[in-house]
């Protein structure tokens, strides 16, 4: 317990750790807000494809810039990821063929291309590993501003047309024939997802960011009794366990992305287990 409080003290004492803490807060809140929509819209695999396709953007960015030029890397990765995302969004909008096959083909191809580009042109071949699994020590003041900016942009885009998002997700055909522009929301959703994933790379890594995108929504939809509650629960769950994750990561010198993923997963499993026991005792 002492080591845990020492870790908390470190976060308040050192600037770079404070940035990490505040950045984690902002990113986990954004992930919590969007997570139930990812689960309900059955876009978990799409999120995985976008996060893996960031590897192509990262490989190109690391070939052009050094790892310290964080804003240039962010902008390049984001631009390439958004192009990939728009391609995926176009090829999956109300298609008859199952979209998961297209996504599966696409993300392995972009990932493979990213690895080839990285091995041929990267300025420093070891940099990619930090981006794959996340490293909070890489978080800078710029990253904190980006994370906060993302929350400021994303929150109104989800909250203001909240009923339209829900209508489209719950009864897509009813929503379209009521005049809601489904295509616009489809693209907006994936662009927000791409922004969120690229901004979260340093915190959780391209591979482990999926945990933050999926676990809060899964937990919330499992335990909530109405749709508004589901979004509130998702944001709280995501924020509490993401912050706990980086505190533990710092206390024990563990990789941040992996620790976050394990903490969120354990919280989910424990809750499901407790729910089972509660249901058993009540029956």
């Amino acid at each position: 317990m002492m080591i845990f409080f020492q870790s908390l003290k470190d976060f308040l004492q050192y600037d770079f750790l404070l940035y990490a803490l505040l950045g984690t807060l902002a990113l986990s809140m954004t992930c919590g807000l969007i997570s139930p929509l990812i689960i309900a819209r059955k876009n978990a695999f799409m999120g995985s494809a976008i996060s893996h396709s960031t590897l192509l953007g990262l490989a190109i960015a690391l070939s052009l810039f050094s790892a310290e030029q964080s804003l240039s890397i962010f902008a390049t990765t984001l631009a390439i990821t958004i192009v990939c995302t728009l391609f995926l969004a176009t090829s999956t909008f109300r298609q008859k063929l199952p979209s998961d096959s297209m996504i599966g083909i696409f993300y392995t191809a972009t990932m493979a291309l990213g690895i080839i580009i990285h091995s041929l042109f990267a300025k420093n071949k070891t940099d990619l590993l930090s981006f794959l699994f996340g490293n909070i020590l890489l978080l800078t003041k710029e990253d904190l501003l980006l994370s906060a900016g993302l929350l400021i942009v994303t929150a109104p885009l989800i909250i203001i047309p909240f009923k339209k998002w829900l209508f489209l997700t719950y009864d897509e055909e009813g929503a379209i024939t009521s005049g809601i522009k489904a295509r616009l929301y489809h693209y907006l959703f994936f662009i927000l997802l791409a922004l969120l994933i690229v901004t979260s790379i340093k915190l959780a890594g391209t591979i482990l960011i999926e945990t933050l995108l999926l676990v809060p929504g899964f937990f919330a939809l499992k335990f909530s009794t109405n749709v508004r509650q589901a979004f509130i629960v998702s944001v709280i769950f995501s924020t509490v366990f993401a912050v706990l994750g980086i505190l533990i990561a710092n206390a024990y010198g563990l990789p941040s992305g992996a620790t976050l993923a394990v903490v969120l997963f354990l919280a989910l499993v424990l809750s499901l287990f407790l729910k089972k026991i509660y249901t058993f005792l009540r029956s």
Partner: peptide
């Protein structure tokens, strides 16, 4: 248009009042 009820997304826990409220959008 009234689609088939089987087209509704069963993942979201939507109440009758909430669904009616969607039309308010």
């Amino acid at each position: 248009y009234v689609p088939q009820h089987s087209e509704l997304n069963s993942i979201l826990p939507v109440k009758v009042s909430e669904y009616m409220g969607f039309a308010k959008a």
